[in-house]
Amino acid sequence: MTHFFADDGAKLHVKISGEGSPIVMLHGWTSSSQEWFPFLTELNKRHRVYRWDARGHGGHKQDVKTPPTVERMARDLSDLLDHYGLEQVTMVGHSMGALTLWQYIRDYGTKRISRLCFIDQSPKLLTDADWGHGIYGDFNGEKSQEMLGTLNDDFAEGVLKLTAFGLNARAREKYLAGASGWERSRSALRAQDPGPLIKCWESLTKADYRDVLASIDVPSMLIYGGESNFYRTETAHYVADRIPNALLQIYEGTDHSPHQWQRERFVRELMAFIEQPPQAV
C-alpha cells in the first residue's frame, strides 16, 4: 500500500496494481479499498487500478481535523488525480463512492473522466413530500435524526440495522438470526472510529445531486440491485432517465452490493463497457 497527501495535509492510503488505462474505484460508507479486491485478477490484465481508503475509512487514524464530508472527499479525489497525473480515467463508485463522484463532477466537471460506473445509489438519500427515491422510499429528516441518535449510541448496531431493516427481506431474516456474516460485519464496524464516519454520514444525508445528473457528458453505466436494501428499481430508472445515454443494468436477486453477488458478470460488463468505442456506448 502506498499513499498520497491531500491539500490539507491528510495522508490518504491507496493501493495500486496492474498496467493499462487507469481505473479509480471508490468504495461505500464504512468500507475500504478491500471492497474491490475480488475483481483485480481480471481488471489488472488490462488496467491500472487505484483503490483508496477514503478519508476516515479503512481503519486509518485521521491525522488532520478536517472531517470526511462528501465535499472534502471529492477534493481528495481531485488531489489523487493530480498526484498520480491521471487523465482519461474510468471512475467506479459504489454507494458513498457514487455520491463522491457526483460531488466531484459538480465541483470539477468531467474533463479528466473517460467513463463512469455508478453502483446502487440515489442522488438524494432523504425523502420528502416531493421526493420518494431516497432510502427505503421513506426516510425523511425525522428518521434521519433518529438514525444519527442510534449511530451515536451504538455505531456498529446502527449501521447493521440501517442495512437489515430495509427493503431486502433476506437481510432482515439473517440479521435477526445472528448469521455469521452479520457477526463478522459487527466486529469489523466495532473496530472503526465512529466519530469521523458519523460526520461523513451527516454529510451524505444532506447532499442532493439531482441537478448534476443531466450534466454528465461521458459514457455512464449504472448497476443496481434488484433487491437492494435501500432503493427500488424506480430509483435506478430515475437516475438512468436523467444521465444522457446511460446504460442501466439491474442485477436481479442482489442487494445493495450487486457487484459482490454477481462478480463475474460485473467485471465482464465493466471491462466491455470500458473498451467500447465512445460512439458505441
Score class of each variant (00 low, 15 high):
Ile216His: 05
Gly225Ala: 03
Ile250Gly: 02
Trp201Val: 04
Ala246Arg: 04
Glu19Ile: 11
Phe37Cys: 04
Gln34Met: 06
His259Ser: 11
Ser257Trp: 02
Leu176Met: 14
Val281Pro: 01
Ala164Val: 13
Trp261Ala: 10
Arg75Gln: 14
Gln249Asn: 09
Ala240His: 01
Glu202Thr: 10
Ala6Lys: 01
Phe155Pro: 13
Phe155Ser: 04
Ser144Glu: 09
Leu125Pro: 13
Tyr209Cys: 03
Asp63Trp: 03
Asp120Tyr: 07
Pro68Ser: 07
Thr2Arg: 03
Val92Pro: 15
Pro196Lys: 02
Asp217Ser: 15
Ser33Asn: 13
His83Cys: 13
Leu213Ala: 08
Lys65His: 11
Leu81Arg: 08
Ala191Ser: 14
Leu189Phe: 06
His47Ala: 00
Leu189Gln: 04
Ile198Glu: 01
Gly149Asp: 14
Thr235Gln: 09
Thr127Asn: 07
Arg232Ala: 15
Gly149Ile: 13
Asp153Thr: 15
Lys111Leu: 12
Phe37Thr: 12
Ala171Phe: 15
Pro278Arg: 11
Thr163Pro: 00
Leu77Ser: 01
Pro194Gln: 12
Ser95Phe: 04
Ala177Thr: 04
Gly93Cys: 11
Ser144Pro: 00
Leu43Gln: 01
Asp255Gln: 05
Arg72Leu: 09
Ser95Thr: 07
Thr127Ile: 13
Met221His: 02
Asp128Ser: 11
Arg210Ala: 04
Met221Arg: 02
Gly109Leu: 15
Met25Asp: 00
Leu160Val: 09
Ala188Val: 00
Arg55Val: 07
Glu157His: 08
